[in-house]
Design a protein around this nucleic acid. Structure first.
Lengths: 150, 150
DNA sequence: CAGAAAACCAACTAAAACGATAGGAATTGA
DNA sequence: TCAATTCCTATCGTTTTAGTTGGTTTTCTG
C-alpha cells in the first residue's frame, strides 16, 4: 500500500513548479536539484505530466516547464492519477476501467475496497497545489516572526 | 497504490473465518477452496495473522483455524496492518516507525501524505468483520425474499 | 552563425518485490 | 497407526521499480 517514487517525486516537482508559478519556464535541472531527484529520471515523470495536460514545456535555451493551469486548479489527485494510474487499492474497484471479477455481484469485499477508495479520493481531490503553497507561505511567515521577535 | 495479494487474500480468508465463526476450527484447505486461493500460499498469510494474534490454530487431524476474537472486535484495519504493514502511502508518515527524512520539519508534502493516511485509517478502522457478515446476511435475505415473492 | 542550454526520446539494466511452489517435520484425533 | 492438519524453511520465475546511458532536436544568445 505504498506510492512509488513516481507519485512522490512527481508531486515534489509539481509543488516546485507551483511555488515558481508565473516566473516563466523553469529548467528541469533546477527542479531536480532543489528536490534532490535525478534529473534524467524526473524527465520521464514530467513527460507523463505533460501528456496528462498538467504542465507545459518550452524547448530550447532558456526553456523549461511550467504548470499548464493555475495552482488552485490542480489537485494532488490530478498529479497522482497521472503518475500512479486510477485510484483504488484493488483492481476491481479502480475509478477507471475496473477489472471486474466473476463474483463481483455478490462480493462483500468489493464494498470494503470501494469505501477505502472513496476516502482516498476525497482526500486527494480536496488538496490543491495552491493549498500547499499557502501552507509553505504560512510557515515562512511564522518563522520570520519568530526570528524577528526573539 | 495497490494492495498486494497478501491483503486481498488475507481479508478473504478472515471474512471466511468470520462467516464460520463458532463452528470450531476450520481447515485451511476448505478456506482456500472457497476463496479460490492456493492453500500453500494462504498458509504463509494465515501464519502472519496468527502471529499478529488475529487467529488461533488447532493442530492435528480435525484441526484448523478460527478467529481469535469475535468478528465485531476485528477490523479491516487490523487485518491489513498485519499483512501489509503500518498504514501510510509514504515511509515518512507510517503509523509505526516512520522513516523521517532530513527536511521533515519543513516538508509540505508530509502534510499531504498525513491527510491521505488518516483518511485511509479512518476507513479501514470503521469496518469490522461483523459488518461484512451482516452485509452478507442482508444480501442473502433479500435474495431469498425476491425468490419467495416472485 | 556558433555554441550552449534545454527539451525530447529510446533502450537498457540492476535490484527488489511479488506470488507463489517444493518438500518436508511435528502434532493429534479417530 | 495413519490420515489430517498445522508448522517451517528454502527456492524460484516473473514483473516492477528506479533509475542510467546515450543520444537527437529545438531555440535563445553572444
Amino acid at each position: 500500500m505504498k506510492l512509488t517514487t513516481k507519485g512522490r517525486y512527481g508531486l515534489s516537482a509539481m509543488f516546485d513548479l507551483a511555488v515558481n508559478y508565473g516566473k516563466g519556464p523553469i529548467p528541469l535541472k533546477s527542479v531536480a536539484d532543489r528536490q534532490g531527484i535525478s534529473e534524467h529520471y524526473l524527465e520521464q515523470l514530467i513527460m507523463i505530466l505533460r501528456k496528462a495536460g498538467l504542465v507545459k514545456s518550452v524547448r530550447g535555451a532558456q526553456g523549461g516547464y511550467m504548470l499548464a493551469k493555475k495552482p488552485s486548479e490542480i489537485t494532488v489527485g490530478d498529479v497522482l492519477r497521472a503518475l500512479e494510474g486510477p485510484i483504488g487499492l484493488v483492481d476491481c474497484v479502480l475509478e477507471q476501467d475496473p477489472v471486474e471479477c466473476e463474483k463481483a455481484e455478490t462480493c462483500i469485499m468489493k464494498l470494503v475496497w470501494e469505501k477505502i477508495r472513496d476516502s482516498i479520493i476525497q482526500a486527494v481531490d480536496s488538496i490543491t497545489l495552491q493549498d500547499m503553497c499557502n501552507e509553505a507561505e504560512r510557515r515562512k511567515a511564522s518563522a520570520h516572526n519568530y526570528m524577528y521577535y526573539i
